[in-house]
Each structure stands twice: as C-alpha cells, then as structure tokens.
Computed example of a mutant assay.
Amino acid sequence: MSLEHDYFGLVGDYWSETFEYADQRVEVVLDADADLVSIAALDVASAMVGELELIDDELRQAFVSQLDTKSSPVVRYLDTVLDPELEQADDIDAAIGRESGDRQVDALRSMSLVRVDLRPDADEPGDAFAEYEYALAPDDTDERLIVAIDLEREIVDVRFEG
C-alpha cells in the first residue's frame, strides 16, 4: 500500500532532505513504512521539520539543565570532547564560537545539529519519534550527543556515542 502526504509526498521506506539555518547543514531523514504510519504521525513529523530551529533551541536548553548531573550523557560528552589531551583539541577549540566564561555552555551552544531522524511509526507518548544528533566539530570528531524525543516533544533518551 502506498501513502501520500502533503509534505513528504509518496511515503516509501526513506525520505531525506538537507536544510540550512544558523550556519548549519542539517540532514533530516524520514524512515517510514507506508503500512505502519498514519497521516497524523506524518503531520507531526512535518511540523517538526518546520520547527527545526525551535526544537533545536529547546533541546540545547535541556542540555544546559543537565550540566548539574555529573553522570549525565551531556557531561560525559563534554568531558570527552573538551579534554585538552584529545587529538582534535585544536579543532574543538576552533569550533567553540562563543566565550561567555562557561566553557561547557559555550560548547553546547556551539554544537552543530548534524542530523534528525524522524520515525513516525513510533507514535505513542514515550516512543522515540525523532532523534536529534549533535556534534562539536562534526567534520573532525566522531563523538555525538543524541537526544530522542516523542511526538509530544518530551525527551525520552539522551546518549553519548563516541
């Protein structure tokens, strides 16, 4: 069965587009099986694409709120990428475009949103409906901070991948 959506067109297995905003190139991917998704879930996914910048800001604020928890994935990510012994330390320093005096906050605000994966078949509250992948100096490092949100934009998971 095929399914057509106003924004995504004919829904198959894979849809991808690159968006540019705030000096970032963000790849947005929709991974959907037409037999498993609803028009309502696709509408939520298209709204997330339209509000990419707003959701990005909300997620960065959530990252800042996790700085008080030393075992959080956000702190583990920052401890790794901000390590002065890291081979790419100069690239990381060059990627931090702000200097407020709080290096961790500056790093979070300087990260690039690299990719957004939309999964409209995960359409229940608490399901990972979308994953936002962030990196500081993404061309020079492999470390990623990934946050999953549900269709109501509640964070369901934050993880550090390196």
Rank of each mutant, 00 (worst) to 15 (best):
D35C: 03
E99A: 01
Y7R: 04
Q66A: 06
L82W: 14
P73A: 08
V114G: 01
T80L: 10
S110L: 06
V74T: 11
D83R: 08
R60I: 02
E58L: 15
M111R: 01
P120R: 02
S16H: 07
D43N: 14
A62L: 04
I96G: 11
A41T: 12
G97L: 15
F19K: 04
A32W: 07
I39Q: 15
P120E: 00
V44W: 05
A62D: 10
D106E: 03
D43V: 01
A89T: 06
V11D: 06
L86T: 11
L42A: 10
V49G: 02
D31A: 00
A89Q: 06
F19A: 03
R98E: 06
D79N: 15
E51C: 00
V116Q: 13
L54T: 14
D91F: 15
V116K: 06
T80R: 07
I55S: 09
D93F: 02
E87F: 14
L52T: 09
L113P: 02
S100Y: 14
D90S: 13
R76D: 00
D106L: 09
S65H: 10
D57G: 14
E17W: 01
V75A: 00
L108F: 12
L10W: 04
Y7L: 07
P73I: 08
D79Y: 02
V28L: 09
R76E: 05
L52D: 05
Y7I: 02
Q24N: 11
P120F: 08
K70R: 06
F8R: 02
Q61N: 13
D33K: 15
A32V: 13
R76T: 00
A22E: 13
S72V: 10
G50A: 11
W15F: 14
G101M: 05
V37F: 07
D102S: 09
F8V: 01
V29N: 09
L54W: 05
P120D: 04
R109D: 12
E58I: 10
L108W: 04
E17M: 07
Q88A: 15
V49I: 11
I92C: 09
R98N: 05
G101L: 12
L42Y: 11
Q61A: 12
E124C: 02
D57K: 11
